[in-house]
């Protein structure tokens, strides 16, 4: 049974029972360029004979046409599909509209492909129960991404930002003939960071990345940066910090903590970034 609590969130998988606000009180097209405005789409009825149905509002965008993105409503037969949001999407693709496009692979929360915005928060479609969603369930692609088609975001830029932090072990000491040794307590420092699956739920949910994503690296890349900064085998901490110390790359993080709230792996990007900032304090004083 999903855990729900009105006030205190204890883990990121918790869905708010009584959200104070469903969305921020801004106009629907607040700051939205004409080409990105979402129009009303069509409604796809449930197949005849379906008893238990639930409506899913899904963001659609067809790159081959000239139309704007639209919001389609699908009536899903709950008795004919599996329990997760991803099962509903697959059911729609198989039974209603085969053009519905989304990424998915492992269906068990380890590949990060099916990250999307579900009822206003980013999560993996494969680890969110349909019964945890509202009515209608609202399915959008990851927030603030260029959309290739339907629920498929273009991750080129956020992956380039990940590439920028040079996510590999760097050492000038010649490689040993055996494994690089690491004390168990140093290995433990990677726990909570190495598990990141690069689904970009956090970066896509970060308001600071919305406004300055061209220059701010975002929580996913910064968590990975910390994962290498805290690795006892790495010898490039100085260069890594030089690369990060910038008013935008690192310091655009204002500790909003939407990242930690939304991580589907229960990791803590906000804490990772705070540790990078503290490491820079240690270097300066």
């Amino acid at each position: 049974m999903p855990r729900t609590d009105a006030f205190i969130v204890r883990s990121s998988d918790q869905v708010p029972k009584h959200p104070l606000l469903k969305r921020f009180p801004v106009p629907r097209n607040f700051g939205v360029t004409p080409g990105s405005r979402i129009e009303r789409g069509r409604t796809w009825a449930a197949p005849a004979g379906a008893v238990r149905t639930k409506a899913f509002e899904i963001y659609r965008y067809d790159p081959d046409g000239d139309d704007n993105p639209r919001l389609d409503t699908f009536e899903v037969d709950l008795d004919a599909c599996g329990p997760m949001v991803l099962d509903a999407l697959i059911w729609i693709k198989n039974n209603v509209d085969p053009t519905l496009t989304f990424r998915r692979s492992c269906r068990e929360g380890i590949c990060g492909s099916c990250a999307m915005n579900i009822d206003g928060a980013n999560w993996l479609a494969c680890t969110r129960y349909i019964e945890e969603t509202g009515t209608p369930a609202q399915i959008y692609p990851l927030a603030n991404m260029r959309i290739i088609k339907d629920l498929v975001p273009d991750l080129t830029h956020v992956l380039a930002q990940y590439e920028m932090i040079e996510p590999w072990l760097q050492a000038t000491t010649p490689a040993p003939d055996r494994e690089r040794l690491q004390a168990p307590e140093d290995r433990a420092k990677l726990d909570g960071y190495y598990e990141c699956i690069l689904c970009f739920c956090c970066t896509s949910g970060c308001p600071s990345h919305w406004w300055n994503g061209d220059r701010f690296l975002g929580p996913a890349a910064l968590l990975q940066a910390w994962r290498w900064l805290t690795d006892s085998r790495d010898e490039a901490a100085g260069e890594r910090l030089d690369l990060l110390e910038d008013p935008f790359r690192l310091y655009r993080c204002h500790t909003i903590l939407n990242c930690t709230r939304t991580c589907p792996k229960g990791l803590n990007p906000g804490k990772a970034i705070a540790q990078i900032k503290k490491m820079i304090v240690d270097r300066q004083s």
Partner: peptide
């Protein structure tokens, strides 16, 4: 140009 998916217009206030 590829459309930008909505951000503050849909993201749940937390």
């Amino acid at each position: 140009a590829r459309p930008l998916s909505p951000n503050i217009q849909i993201y749940r206030p937390q």
